[in-house]
Design a protein around this nucleic acid. Sequence first.
DNA 1: ACAACCATGTAAGTAGTTACATGATTTA
DNA 2: TAAATCATGTAACTACTTACATGGTTGT
Lengths: 181, 181
Amino acid sequence: MSLPHALLTSLIERPSSGSELSARFDRSIGHFWHATHQQIYRELAKLEKAGWVESFFAEEGERKKKTYRVLAAGREELKRWLATEEPPLPVRSPLMVRMRAAAVVGTQGVVPELRRHLRLHQEKLTHYLALQARDEARCQGSSTELVQLMILNSGIQLERYWIETIEQAIAVLAQHSKDVT
Amino acid sequence: MSLPHALLTSLIERPSSGSELSARFDRSIGHFWHATHQQIYRELAKLEKAGWVESFFAEEGERKKKTYRVLAAGREELKRWLATEEPPLPVRSPLMVRMRAAAVVGTQGVVPELRRHLRLHQEKLTHYLALQARDEARCQGSSTELVQLMILNSGIQLERYWIETIEQAIAVLAQHSKDVT
DNA sequence: ACAACCATGTAAGTAGTTACATGATTTA
DNA sequence: TAAATCATGTAACTACTTACATGGTTGT
């Protein structure tokens, strides 16, 4: 489970409140690890209990936010975790489940859903490409920036993979439904 | 959640017992939807309660197995589900979490884990390619077979994606750790 | 002063994992 | 006949999701 370590990493980059983290998970970090605000608040409480972060109330603007900061122990924990082994996540591809189902009970109604996903992935790709253009322009060449660009690039390639896969799926289903009729 | 519909699909292809399904989930189906035997037994009980499948005891060899078969209602449910919308699964990439963590606390110990994953993906790719060669040889050209080949191909492309991504990650980290020292 | 919304949470439920249990059957 | 394995499960736990709650802040 990577959430606590994703949070520690984010908090090292910048001490933040739960809501700020939540906003960042909807943007950059969330591109490769999603979390809802409920998960984040619960996990922050756990991290504090474990002595990996501490919280204090900061008056930002006029709102008071509970800001978290990583302690030395948290930094050590992150280093320790970096050297541990984890099994790869099991694959979960609902679209492929659909494809197989369509192959046995007919393609009625599947293609619109595939097209919808295709559109979502195309939008995501466009968004990532814009981010990439922006980040490459302002990149100073620090290796931390290069890591982030590499991660963004891997997101871009993944969206391209999905777009190609779904296009092939649609083509195969078109053939299949022709065969059936 | 795709598990019940993955099971219905499998059972339409061939009525089976829990253990047979479990074995198949470790092979073909599991390439894009993983499930443990506990999940499968629990889900089969639910499917039967819902009236989508029925079970009977078959004497295969000498062992008696509880075999499940899909009922008309199950087939209808599968068709109904095919036309429904589902949001894409949120992305979850522990390796990218690691990359970001390594960028902030140092690359100590990360590379071996990346290499290990690289090896796992290479092995999976080799395995898929062997399956592909076998299936293409025996393929009669039915559209159901073409769907299965398409799915296998998408698995192959995904492994290639991971191999490329991890190789880039290792290269970027090598650069990063040089910068730090 | 009241409505909208922001920040922080709690509660209940679902999906999936890990560890263990039981009886039956095959193998040594 | 004892050990190993197979087939079917139960129980407890963890991660995550969805729906709701609460009190403070901002805008009108």
